[in-house]
Design a protein around this nucleic acid. Structure first.
Length: 326
DNA sequence: AACGGAAGCAACCGCGCGGCG
DNA sequence: GCGCCGCGCGGTTGCTTCCGT
């Protein structure tokens, strides 16, 4: 049975041939898609409009990013999914060049299994029972596990800023309980409660200390430094890859930050691809601050905790400079 | 080399929503 | 208000490729 939209036509189904692709590309790049239902006829295709639309959006669009997901994209997906659930169309808005279908497939084929293998319920992102985890361990994804070894999160405050305001499934419930520390869970690396103490700690690499002191000393609310950073680890001879966040799992209660102008928060992140994309995400988030929501600084943690990341933390998270890799 | 199961991914299906007459 | 239509979305299917035996 064909689609409703094309029940009167004889339509082809299944995989698209290169010739069909060519016809569709040629038509849309020349005329735009307009009404999808009329595209097949006008483009000379024996397909239904729905199929044309899907083919264009998921495969032929020129702005698509091909190739496997990066660790950063993976973290973004997890972060946003934690807030939105399976709303792929919303999730994919935070992954330029990706399609909802692609993200959905990636989630189902890989991330979901990774989360389960780590003892996390992929639906709720909360801890699973031991038995459940055990039962799924054997089916863990065999794809690259870079994200398991090196946290590279953007922490996507942008997506959560926007989506919390408009689409959050449940209200934030700050700190019902503090869960035990998961074992080096890459999806939920610890956050910055001990950030300020780190600043006064001792580091084998003096550059680390210098960088931390320089970049995170602007101001603070409570024990949480609120700062903008104009520095980059590389300026202190630090390699992005040489540091990872590996602290304890100690969430911090959200403290509403001072209202800050978005421009003040923009990081200079041109030095690595990783940080460039951080900057892009941050820029996107700043746009949403125009909406005037009070919780623009909030983001979610597992188990209903939340925390307000600031740009310094964002950078810290991504470059992983807070502690040296063992 | 052959086979079977698992994984990956493109495409389909059905439903809900919004615009319009 | 109602029905129709087109579109977009999320879930699912099924084909292809990969990988271990």
């Amino acid at each position: 049975m064909g689609h409703q939209c094309c029940s009167k036509q004889k339509v082809k189904r299944g995989l698209w041939s290169p010739e069909e692709d060519e016809k569709l590309i040629k038509y849309i790049t020349t005329h735009g898609h307009g009404s999808w239902s009329s595209v097949p006829k006008l483009a000379g295709l024996q397909r239904c409009g729905k199929s044309c639309r899907l083919r264009w959006i998921n495969y032929l669009r020129p702005d698509l990013k091909r190739g496997s997901f990066t660790a950063q994209e993976e973290r973004t997906i997890v972060d946003v999914h934690r807030v939105l659930g399976n709303r792929w169309a919303q999730i994919v808005k935070h992954l330029p060049g990706r399609t909802d279908n692609e993200v959905k497939n990636f989630w189902n084929s890989c991330i979901k299994k990774k989360l389960i293998a780590q003892g996390l319920d992929p639906n709720t992102h909360n801890l699973l029972s031991t038995n459940y985890k055990h039962n799924y361990n054997s089916s863990a994804c065999k794809l690259s596990d870079h994200s398991l070894q090196q946290p590279t999160s953007t922490f996507t405050a942008n997506s959560q800023i926007y989506d919390i305001s408009t689409e959050m499934k449940a209200p934030l419930t700050p700190f019902p309980t503090i869960p035990p520390a998961p074992d080096a869970n890459p999806y939920y690396p610890p956050l910055v409660h001990e950030f300020s103490s780190i600043l006064t700690g001792e580091y084998p690499n003096p550059n680390t200390q210098a960088f931390l002191e320089c970049t995170a000393s602007q101001s603070s609310i409570g024990s949480v430094p609120i700062s903008s950073s104009t520095s980059h680890p590389s300026e202190f001879g630090m390699s992005d890859e040489s540091f990872i966040w590996a602290g304890g799992y100690e969430p911090i209660q959200s403290i509403l930050p001072e209202k800050k102008q978005p421009e003040q928060q923009v990081l200079e992140t041109e030095n690595t691809n990783e940080l460039i994309s951080v900057g892009q995400n941050m820029d996107a988030s700043f746009e949403t601050t125009n909406l005037g929501f009070d919780f623009v600084e909030s983001t979610l943690l597992p188990c209903g905790m939340y925390y307000n990341p600031n740009p310094m933390d964002q950078l810290a998270w991504d470059s992983g400079f807070l502690q040296e890799k063992k």
